[in-house]
Design a protein around this nucleic acid. Structure first.
Ligand SMILES: NC(=O)c1ccc[n+]([C@@H]2O[C@H](COP(=O)([O-])OP(=O)(O)OC[C@H]3O[C@@H](n4cnc5c(N)ncnc54)[C@H](O)[C@@H]3O)[C@@H](O)[C@H]2O)c1
Ligand SMILES: NC(=O)c1ccc[n+]([C@@H]2O[C@H](COP(=O)([O-])OP(=O)(O)OC[C@H]3O[C@@H](n4cnc5c(N)ncnc54)[C@H](O)[C@@H]3O)[C@@H](O)[C@H]2O)c1
Lengths: 242, 242
DNA sequence: CTCACTTTGTGCATAGGTTCACAAACGTCT
DNA sequence: AGACGTTTGTGAACCTATGCACAAAGTGAG
């Protein structure tokens, strides 16, 4: 079984979470006309250790050349392929309030194979409105819309109170991947993948660290450097010369 | 030092990331008039194992009662205190485009001690506009505004090209905590805490898992359980059209 | 061809996180 | 008071992730 040569390697979650970063940096480099990059350079650009980058990439296969580095185009393609970005992902957004509008009009998605195919909102006031070329529909249209152009990823941007209901209906029509912006824990069958983005959580984590720093600063626990010079950029010791 | 009763224990990052979830569930329970909760109940509500919840809480101290559970109010307060939410955190948002507007008008922040004190945008078209009672100012006003009411947390919602510059200026006036929505890696002094939220990354992670599921579904590699009775509703077979 | 130099890919050690399983602590009932 | 069922808090095992260090594999010069 596992002796299959072309076996789907287990790519660790932590690695998967970093691949988009690598891909972004590679795209940037490609735009600049850079043809080849070493793990040292690329890792510096994304802010990780070079060993980590190499280990991450090793999970995809051997696409580097020893003594040389990685060909930018090749590596970008291989990461895209591993992430599944070489195919098309029809996305639907449910809840076209402030956040939904921002998401729908954001062009950053489209560049990576994500295509917004439907926008849903039950507010009659939004009926007929078009955002980025897609009309807003009542949520009950989900079934018919889904039949026409199956939705692969559902984005929930409704208030928390509606999130579980919306989620259930998305799951019912076959959506297996959900990105949830509502501050609610969604209950789904185990074959459905839910990721939650919560800005409030992020702020709270920042607050925690800020408080820790403040407390450390009051104690003479070696906070001598807390007031250091200033804005000297955190040039890592290994910041590579150009 | 370590004999200090109120010693600042090291709270693991993974735990800190979950504390806001616990707090949210506790707040919900408090609203419902629930006075006491067991680790089993609370963990079920947030979707983690009970042992994990207990271990997480043990880092804050012993606030449970054996054989009984946790008093909702007490636990909520202790988590709030650990996260630093018992104090006030002045927040500034830079970049009042689609996303900035959504963030500024979002009421979820305010409830937890976060107070939006300034909104910045260099676009003359936005001059004078007010969102949620706060006027949008040109970014160069940062210094004066900061002096009046020091900013603890800066939120960057500008295009990626402007993110580093904005970040530098925030750091220069003393902001030590930054939440970055722009798809850019920020370089900062090591005493500055940057968290990045990237919707595109989240979608890409979802796409990866969706692809893995699709591939596993095609191979009989022990996918027998994939058809378990979870989803009673036969979804369209994953359309893997090109 | 050989040597010197560069950079990848990876084995291994360390660190961090999760889960299990159970003794200790508590309330309650008799 | 003592026995009993419940739930916490935590040691220990297990799993995952990170960082180090180096052999292997390549390039290019002479
Ligand atoms: N705005 C932000 O910056 C922000 C930040 C963090 C989290 N959030 C969360 O994101 C979600 C959306 O935020 P928002 O600011 O856009 O809220 P909003 O109130 O502006 O928009 C919510 C939209 O959902 C629609 N809706 C409600 N129930 C629906 C249903 N059953 N089916 C379809 N549409 C429905 C409403 O008509 C409304 O247009 C909320 O859960 C909020 O907590 C928002
Ligand atoms: N809208 C989304 O859903 C979304 C999703 C993911 C990421 N993002 C990222 O968030 C950021 C903002 O997104 P958006 O959709 O709001 O973009 P936007 O173009 O609508 O808004 C950007 C705003 O920043 C302002 N700005 C530019 N340079 C500035 C400077 N130096 N100082 C102050 N203000 C400045 C502009 O005037 C504009 O109002 C972008 O980096 C985008 O990639 C947005």
């Amino acid at each position: 079984m596992s002796a299959d040569p072309a076996v789907r390697r287990e790519i660790p979650d932590a690695t998967v979470a970093r691949l988009p970063e690598y891909l972004r940096s590679l795209s940037r480099l490609a735009e600049q006309g850079v043809l080849s990059v070493s793990s040292e350079e690329l890792s510096a650009a994304v802010g990780v250790r070079s060993a980590q980058l190499r280990k991450d990439l090793s999970h995809l296969g051997s696409y580097g050349v020893r003594g040389v580095g990685y060909e930018v185009d090749t590596l970008a393609f291989e990461i895209s392929r591993a992430l599944g970005l070489t195919q098309d992902w029809p996305v639907a957004i449910v809840g076209m309030g402030n956040l939904g509008h921002a998401l729908a009009s954001y062009s950053g998605f489209v560049t990576k194979g994500f295509r917004i195919v439907a926008l849903f909102d039950d507010d009659p006031a939004l009926r007929g409105e078009t955002v980025a070329g897609v009309a807003i529909q009542p949520f009950r249209e989900l079934r018919s819309r889904h039949g026409a152009d199956p939705i692969a990823i559902g984005v929930i941007a409704t208030p928390a109170a509606a999130a579980q209901t919306v989620c259930d209906e998305l799951v019912e029509v076959g959506v297996r991947s959900i990105l949830n912006f509502a501050p609610a824990v969604l209950s789904v069958p185990e074959d459905v993948d839910v990721r939650r983005v919560d800005l409030s959580t992020e702020l709270q984590i920042l607050a925690f660290h800020a408080q820790q720093k403040a407390l450390a600063g009051l104690q003479p626990v070696g906070a001598a450097h807390a007031l250091d010079g200033c804005v000297a950029h955190a040039a890592d010791p290994e910041a590579v010369a150009t």
